[in-house]
Design a protein around this nucleic acid. Structure first.
Length: 533
RNA sequence: GGCGACGUACCCAAGUGGCUAAGGGGGAGGUCUGCAAAACCUCUAUGCAUCGGUUCGAAUCCGAUCGUCGCCUCCA
């Protein structure tokens, strides 16, 4: 079953066929780095992370570009508007680029914690003024823009396709636009490509029209075309960017090249708090750094993936707590498989986020749909797993469980516009079957365990990025902590042997206080760190 | 005002024409266990905002009503 994606441009689900058979060019609007990232950023970038991971999983080579907006945007519509970064810089009495740098690092820090793979290229808007100026010049040369008093505006009436993404007409737009008495614009819906820098404006670049700075939308057009070419496969971003940002990008790009800018427009929905959009200006935004104090980053990631990227996701304490429990349930199964596999606790190699795991040979499919490149087996996929002729891995059966049926279910879900919630549901069902089987079977063939481990490594790990990681230390790891724990556990085992329940319970309660959970099982006692949330 | 979404159990959330309405959390009962935890088993929406309509058949399509939200201004 081929991959289908919901294209905002056509408002329907379409088969995904990239321009180049095996290569997917994707551009996602990045953050404006004037503040810490919040849960909304997590939803957006985790969503696109999984989209990119899945495209790689089914065999595509993916080139992923995501900008860093460090030039800032105007806070207001008109000329009096003050650059966000500059306002922030003035408040803190530092250079705007210092602010931008600080929050750029903060952004990547948060994204790394969330297991979001770094984009292949993260271009800064401030470093691409030349490209942006060139684009503006081209638009002027083509008669789609005009200069007014040191600024340049896009003439929307000269571009026939304006409004095709957001479904608006110029009449509707001009009706909604505020009347600006002092406007230099010829038409209310025209938008700035280049703005003249007023005295005191710190971020400025020389241009053919005098000193100034790029307009609101040019950066994405310029950088997308520079690194991915004039026509790309996917352009992603938050729903709120559909208009005007993306609409303007189309106008600028297609106006300048005469070619289609983007084949598939993908938009993720918003995070809400108590049913309302989370936003800085609304004063209800929750920064990721705050959130991570309360819930671990993997829990936040998992929470995001439990709803579809095109649905709103309502944030609440209860919902996060539920997600934490659910993720723990999945992790318990995976850890159990690993422990049975050899007690290393890390049988899948570097779990979760391993870019190396994505290195795989590209191979043409016979059916003309390029979604079936061959994949190299990672170390974790030894054992029973093998590579299927069509390129997707086979897992066979393990302890009576039809892993291929689960793999199929997982892929069917993801093939339908990246339905991660359904894919996760399949993992939960598998998890129950595995728990059940492991409980039943005291000895399981290593090959079966390896197949299970490989299955989780590929699907929960490579695609969804929700495998348990090093920080969740368990009885499998070796270090001083481990040594001490085994000492405590052996002492406690003696108290239990002597039926000194009060004492053994005291030990367990004490460890609970320290954030360590004990589990007394038939085979012995295991321990783990209690998860956050 | 214009444009566009959404309303599924106590909570989160899939499903968009056809088997018994996914999955997670919570709750109830049970198995295991010294107890607890984890795990497993059973139960927890004759109904998908409401009312009409189309259809052999609708949570899913159409219309109306009520409610919530988003975009139209920087915003993931």
């Amino acid at each position: 079953m081929p991959l289908s994606v919901y294209n905002t441009l056509t408002r329907q689900l379409e088969p995904f066929l990239p321009i180049d058979k095996n290569l997917v060019r994707i551009y996602v609007c990045g953050p404006t780095v004037y503040g810490d990232s919040h849960l909304g950023h997590a939803k957006s970038y985790v969503s696109f992370d999984v989209i990119v991971r899945y495209l790689r999983f089914i065999g595509y080579r993916v080139l992923y570009v995501q900008n860093i907006t460090d030039v800032g945007h105007l806070t207001d519509d008109a000329d009096e508007g003050e650059d966000k970064l500059i306002r922030e810089a003035r408040a803190n009495r530092v250079h705007p680029m210092e602010i931008a740098e600080r929050y750029t690092r903060s952004y990547f820090e948060d994204m790394d914690a969330l297991g979001v793979l770094r984009p292949d290229i993260s271009p800064r808007a401030s470093g691409h003024s030349t490209e942006q100026i060139e684009l503006v010049k081209e638009l002027l040369a083509r008669g789609l823009a005009y200069e007014a008093n040191g600024s340049v505006y896009f003439d929307v009436r000269a571009f026939a396709g304006y409004g095709k993404l957001s479904g608006r007409t110029l009449d509707e737009l001009s009706a909604g636009v505020r009347i600006d008495v002092k406007s230099e614009k010829r038409y209310p819906a025209d938008f700035a490509l280049w703005k003249k820098a007023e005295p005191g404006h710190i971020m400025r670049w020389p241009s053919p029209w005098g000193e100034g700075f790029p307009g609101w939308h040019v950066e994405c057009s310029a950088m997308s075309m520079k690194y991915l070419g004039q026509s790309i496969d996917i352009h992603g971003g938050g729903l709120e960017n559909q208009f005007p940002h993306h609409e303007c990008e189309i106008a600028q790009s297609e106006g300048a090249t005469g070619k289609p800018f983007v084949k598939y427009w993908l938009h993720n929905n918003m995070v809400t708090v108590d049913g309302r959009k989370m936003g800085k200006s609304l004063g209800n935004s929750i920064s990721l750094k705050e959130a991570f104090k309360r819930w671990s980053a993997p829990v936040v990631r998992f929470f995001v993936l439990q709803s579809h990227y095109r649905s709103t996701l309502d944030f609440s304490e209860d919902a996060l707590r539920g997600a934490a429990k659910g993720l723990e349930r999945l992790h318990t199964t995976i850890r159990q498989v690993r422990e049975r596999l050899g007690g290393t606790g890390n049988a899948a190699g570097s779990p979760g986020i391993s870019p190396a795991a994505h290195a795989r040979a590209l191979q043409e499919s016979t059916g003309g749909n390029a979604s079936t490149g061959a994949q190299t087996t990672t170390e974790s996929t030894a054992g029973k797993a093998s590579v299927h002729p069509n390129g997707l891995q086979e897992f066979g059966r393990a302890i009576g469980i039809d892993l291929d049926a689960y793999a199929q279910r997982f892929r069917t879900a993801m093939d339908e516009d990246f339905n991660a919630p359904q894919a996760i549901a399949a993992l939960f069902d598998l998890s129950r079957e595995v728990n059940s089987a492991l409980q039943r079977e005291s000895s399981v063939a290593a090959a079966d365990l390896q197949a299970l481990d490989a299955f989780f490594a590929r699907h929960a790990g490579d695609v969804l990025g929700i495998l348990p990681e090093g920080e969740t230390l368990t009885s499998g790891d070796h270090n001083l902590e481990q040594e001490l724990m085994s000492l405590i556990l052996s002492l406690r085992a003696e108290t239990r042997k002597e039926k000194l329940w009060t004492l053994s319970d005291k030990i367990r309660d004490g460890l609970t206080q320290l954030g360590i959970t004990l589990e007394d099982k038939k085979e012995g006692t295991t321990w783990k760190r209690a998860p956050k949330g």
